[in-house]
Amino acid sequence: MTQQEDIKNAIECMRHGGVILYPTDTVWGIGCDATNEKAVAKVYEIKQRDDSKALICLVDSDNRMQRYFRNVPKVAWQLVETTVKPTTIILDDAVNVADNLIAEDGSLAMRITQEAFSKELCYKFQKPIVSTSANVSGEPAAANYCDISEEILNAVDYVCWTRRQEHKPHTPSSIIKLGKNGEVTIIRK
């Protein structure tokens, strides 16, 4: 299967409310259409995770990112431009995504991916894609495809073929929360 066919299949699955398993710029992720509440609920169910713990979304560009927040502070763009490691930014006043994806305080975690497959997937899907590590909550994240449990593999609707043979170290993204008053909180280095 070509990468383009893989992307097409993953998009088709998400357009019909399905959940995918896919390689990202960090670890393997469980994903879905971030605007579809039922699909997001299914991701929480697969993760066996309380929906009060927010999930991360991926987008392909800063233009796409700004569609999902009422206001993106200047410091967020500076972070996007200067960070080398994949960095997830939590911003206030999220809009245009599933309500069950937005944290109780109105914030949303989003990352602009630079990795070829996930960037192309986000670009062609034209919406943010949920990206949470491919594991049951509390268990180690799946750095590579071979690390994903049968339980997770059987719970999703589509498993991407791209990068399945890869065996190299991957780590989760850094997470930085930017508050309304300019406060910066490092959640994960």
Rank of each mutant, 00 (worst) to 15 (best):
Lys180Ala: 11
Ala109Asp: 03
Gln4His: 12
Arg111Glu: 06
Ala155Tyr: 03
Lys38Gly: 08
Glu5Val: 10
Cys146Leu: 14
Arg164Tyr: 06
Leu178Cys: 06
Thr132Gln: 04
Met1Ile: 12
Arg70Gln: 14
Asp62Leu: 14
Val130Trp: 03
Leu55Ala: 04
His170Phe: 11
Asn71Met: 13
Gln165Met: 12
Val72His: 06
Asn154Gly: 13
Phe125Gly: 09
Lys53Asn: 10
Gln48Thr: 13
Ala54Gln: 06
Ala34Pro: 05
Val75Gly: 13
Gly106Cys: 03
Asp6Leu: 02
Ile102Ala: 04
Ala39Phe: 00
Ser118Cys: 09
Glu81Cys: 14
Lys127Pro: 10
Gly18Arg: 00
Gln126Phe: 11
Ser149Val: 03
Thr87Tyr: 07
Val156His: 02
Asp51Ser: 14
Ala98His: 07
Glu120Gly: 10
Ser52Cys: 09
Glu37Cys: 10
Ala134Val: 04
Glu151Thr: 14
Gly31Phe: 00
Met14His: 01
Glu37Phe: 08
Ser173Lys: 00
Glu45Ala: 07
Gln126Thr: 15
Lys38Gln: 12
Phe117Lys: 10
Ala141Phe: 11
Met65Cys: 12
Arg15Trp: 02
Cys122Thr: 05
Ile102Met: 04
Val72Thr: 10
Glu139Asp: 13
Val19Glu: 05
Lys53Trp: 08
Gly179Phe: 12
Gly17Cys: 02
Ala155Arg: 01
Leu101Cys: 05
Val156Cys: 05
Cys146Gln: 14
